[in-house]
């Protein structure tokens, strides 16, 4: 366990040293999401808001989108980081050297995810935090909910990121994952449109993404929106998703290790 934590800490530190003050991070995870956020905010402007599903005016809309974008950016940063780090590590040959070591691959995957989260998302989370305070969604009397929400996001995103790292780390070109998880995840997880308003088939699709449960729990906790399924069902859904993702991560890493021992290659295909 001690070695596991040492490896995780090393990965977090490396991420910070590697990407510190990188323009790429500021643009892709602060400026672009803020611009995208306001684009969606203005996309709602032609509509008559009538307290349907909790959005009644500009402020409640900001709170609704703020929570959605905050959670989405945490999850999306995992996709982006896993992709770019895997590419860099493969090109730089450091992936090969890391595979020579006896370090736990699971610790490496989770360390990378947590490192990226700590390093890259804090700026946008601060932006969303201010937004939630501006809209009075977070007040002095419920301020304690903010760390709880952040903890939920950190745990869920790390497990999600760990799985993506396992996918990206051991495949030559998994850029299709970027396409699959960008727009569909934004649409079906309810980042911009309430999931409860979806038709049945879209609600079923939304259940695949752990982000859906995460957003629903956060919106429920902050009294932005109620879930038609009830918060217990949302928590159960999230726990099942986290369990499945952990199992997939362990399976992928194990398979990749065996493949690596057989062929010396760090990719499946």
């Amino acid at each position: 366990m001690k070695k596991f934590l040492i490896v995780m800490k090393a990965e977090i530190t490396k991420q910070q040293q590697h990407d510190y003050h990188s323009a790429y991070v500021y643009f892709s995870l602060l400026i672009w999401p803020i611009l995208g956020f306001f684009e969606v905010y203005y996309a709602y402007k032609p509509f008559e808001l009538t307290d349907y599903m909790g959005i009644e005016d500009g402020k409640t809309l900001l709170a609704f989108l703020g929570t959605g974008f905050m959670a989405y950016t945490c999850f999306w940063s995992m996709v982006q980081n896993a992709w770019s780090m895997a590419n860099q590590e493969r090109r730089g040959g450091t992936l090969e050297i890391a595979s020579l070591t006896p370090a736990s691959r699971l610790a490496m995957s989770y360390g990378r995810a947590l490192g990226a989260l700590i390093q890259e998302v804090w700026m946008f989370v601060c932006f969303c935090g201010f937004l939630l305070m501006y809209t009075k969604t977070i007040r002095w009397d419920n301020l304690f909910l903010l760390p709880a929400v952040l903890l939920l996001l950190i745990i869920s995103s790390t497990v999600w990121g760990g799985m993506l790292n396992a996918v990206f780390l051991f495949s030559r070109d998994a850029s299709i994952v970027m396409d699959v998880f960008d727009m569909p995840m934004t649409l079906f997880s309810g980042t911009r449109v309430p999931v409860d308003s979806f038709p049945c088939w879209a609600r079923i699709v939304s259940m695949v993404f752990p982000l859906t449960y995460c957003i629903n729990i956060i919106r429920f906790a902050l009294h932005i929106q109620k879930s038609s399924r009830g918060w217990q069902a949302e928590i159960l859904g999230l726990l099942i998703c986290l369990g499945v993702m952990t199992a997939v991560t362990v399976f992928l890493i194990g398979r990749a290790e065996r493949h690596n021992r057989e062929t010396g290659e760090l990719q499946f295909y």
Binding site: K2, V7, G92, I97, T101, A103
Partner: peptide, 28 residues
């Protein structure tokens, strides 16, 4: 351990110390 020629296998943005600390940590 394995040592190869050429300029790969190191993190270029990190310092020598940071590189060694990272790879050392992977050995526990």
């Amino acid at each position: 351990n394995v040592i190869s020629g050429g300029e790969r296998n190191l993190y270029w943005r990190l310092t020598a110390k940071e590189n060694l600390r990272y790879f050392g940590s992977l050995y526990g």
